[in-house]
Design a protein around this nucleic acid. Structure first.
Lengths: 191, 191
DNA sequence: TTCGTCATGTAATGGGTTACATGATTAC
DNA sequence: GTAATCATGTAACCCATTACATGACGAA
């Protein structure tokens, strides 16, 4: 049954929720979403789509003879009821898996469809994840600082500043989210 | 013969060039070098070391009975002549493979052992790589800007700023390198 | 007519992880 | 005595890539 990545699956689910698409177009959207790093290829996408169809998450709406003037017949994918349900489940999940480097970007991209409480949880989780990372580096750092050459030092420094910048970004986002969440009564509805 | 990644191999070669090490320690150093992202596990390192030994790049200096008081006998790895040669070749290579996301960090970490001309070439290559990336994003961006929701927009924006920051960093490094290279006569010795 | 883009797919391969297995030593 | 860390290794699996195969359409 091979779950095919989670990230890719989520990206597909989220994009198809907006509108049905065929594979080729879907790939472009996925790559726009994921950014030039971790862009995916056909060799990943098509098998993934097949499995999602087999798993009952997607339905194909073959756009063959009708309306299409020329063109090779495109296979249009759309969410099934089960697919929508899966998407909702995924988006409701704000646990550790959501603040991984891989997942976070995709999760964030679908924040518009995500519950406000969960958004906050993900942002905070992501931040603490980064802070752990930061601490791990700095502690290993203090022990060996003297021994490192200029370049290695420069690299570590730059990496550290990247993390800091990321954390500052998250802080801003969290502040904004808190503002809009606390505006309404905020009854605790955690799951 | 399975080349086992190049990046990992280079990291191992570079670290062992400084001093012989055993696997466990080597792993810690490699992970410090690569950063918490793309940290590697034993399941990667040990098979890689085995292959490098089989390939004649490394020699094992079994630190069993002698000197070691207690402890499980550690296998200490060091570079062979062939290994040193391979390292030099790798470090002399300043082509496109060196400005990949994966490779660049490792290449940079060993800049102290790298020729000044090659350093410059790698930094410039890396920069243009990032600029390509930037351009690709911004062009796909202009076409769809209006249709994107707040969060997707925020994400793209942040990604873009990250790239810009990276480029600025490279600019500084290049300026510094240029300073020290042009200090000496600078006969063009490109390969 | 040839090149770029649209469009779908498969097979081989690659590079890595997780989980497991084993066992000694050190610090509490 | 028991937990953490040191230390080495294997097997099963995962996810993705590359290269290949195929073909139609539009524009230069």
């Amino acid at each position: 049954m091979a779950r095919r990545s989670g990230v890719l699956e989520l990206a597909v689910l989220g994009l198809l929720h907006e509108s049905p698409l065929h594979g080729y177009e879907l790939r472009k959207r996925v790559n726009a979403l994921l950014g030039p790093l971790r862009a995916i290829s056909y060799g990943s996408l098509y098998p993934c789509l097949k499995e999602m169809v087999a798993g009952g998450l997607l339905a194909t709406d073959d756009e063959a003879s009708e309306s299409a003037v020329g063109r090779r017949s495109r296979i249009v994918y759309k969410l099934t009821a089960e697919g929508k349900e899966r998407l909702q489940d995924q988006l409701a999940e704000g646990g550790p898996s959501a603040w991984d480097d891989d997942s976070f970007g995709v999760r964030f991209a679908f924040f518009a469809q995500t519950d406000a409480e969960v958004r906050l949880k993900i942002l905070e989780g992501r931040r603490s994840r980064l802070e752990e990372r930061r601490e791990k580096v700095t502690s290993a750092f203090g022990r060996t600082r003297e021994k490192l050459d200029r370049y290695t030092l420069e690299l570590q420094q730059h990496g550290l500043e990247s993390v800091d910048r990321e954390v500052r970004w998250l802080n801003e986002l969290i502040a904004t989210e808190r503002g809009s969440v606390s505006a309404r009564p905020r009854r605790v509805t955690t799951k």
